[in-house]
Write a protein that binds this DNA or RNA. Structure first.
Lengths: 134, 134
DNA sequence: TTCGATATGTGATGTTATTACATTTGTCAA
DNA sequence: TTGACAAATGTAATAACATCACATATCGAA
């Protein structure tokens, strides 16, 4: 379940909306974009988003209540590394990266504290290089 | 502006609500707890929370839309290290720690990408040691 | 004492997410 | 083929989280 064509109709519509966007979208923004495709209610969006999150095709940005298409689907699908996001507060652009050392340090803390982690969020808010110089 | 007695009335009420709680509270939970103290509207809570965040006395947990009193006020007030939170999804308990290596790796990424970070969120969701064995 | 900055009170509104229930579609085995 | 189950969908209502707009009050410094 990693290819676009195996998605259901609603899942494809939502994923494509995120894929063609140049930044994160809120669930309600997606809903508005898909009105012409028959979307009427938030739940249609949220259900699709849930599945796409399951499949690892998109990410949720907790600090801004928005969603982005995964930038490096191949890289992540294999490794179990944590993904960090740098979110520009001016232009909204999101950069995605993962760092084995950070992943290792987090794992070290969880192991030594008996904490079973299920999902880890790393979000850096700030101003990107483009917007910083402008 | 680090001592409790320098806070305004509303700020003190909100901070004390968080300080005596054994875990994170949502803004609306705080509001309900402070009805008897004259609180009527969400904004009274949110305004106090904003200030307390400014002062570094509390933290916002982005992934669960809740707030906690800072566990180690002395440690953090000096260093500029990022704080990580481990949030138990069973009991709600939050552990706070900071790690210089993680801080350093994040800084390395932001420096080499010209990204000016303003605030960084690290939240580990999972099950704590107590709940994992129970 | 008067001006400005900060804090407060209050109602309305905006934004994000879920519950509840009915219906449809797809799959698979008898 | 059909019946039965799982997954997906449609829709309305509601819950949960957060801010706007505007009026009033409090306090410290010029």
């Amino acid at each position: 379940m990693t290819a676009t064509q195996e998605l259901t109709k609603n899942q494809s519509l939502v994923f494509n909306a995120l894929a063609r966007a140049d930044g994160p979208l809120s669930a309600y923004t997606i809903l508005d974009q898909l009105r012409n495709d028959g979307f009427r209610a938030p739940l249609q969006v949220y259900r699709a988003l849930d599945k796409l999150l399951d499949y690892g095709m998109i990410h949720r940005l907790e600090s801004i209540n928005a969603f982005v298409a995964c930038a490096h689907p191949h890289t992540h699908s294999h490794g179990h590394g944590m993904i960090a996001f740098a979110i520009c507060e001016k232009c909204g652009q999101v950069s995605e990266f993962s760092d084995d050392i950070i992943t290792g340090r987090v794992r070290e803390w969880t192991n030594s504290n008996g904490f079973k982690q299920s999902k880890t969020t790393i979000e850096i808010r700030g101003v990107c290089a483009n917007c910083g110089t402008a």
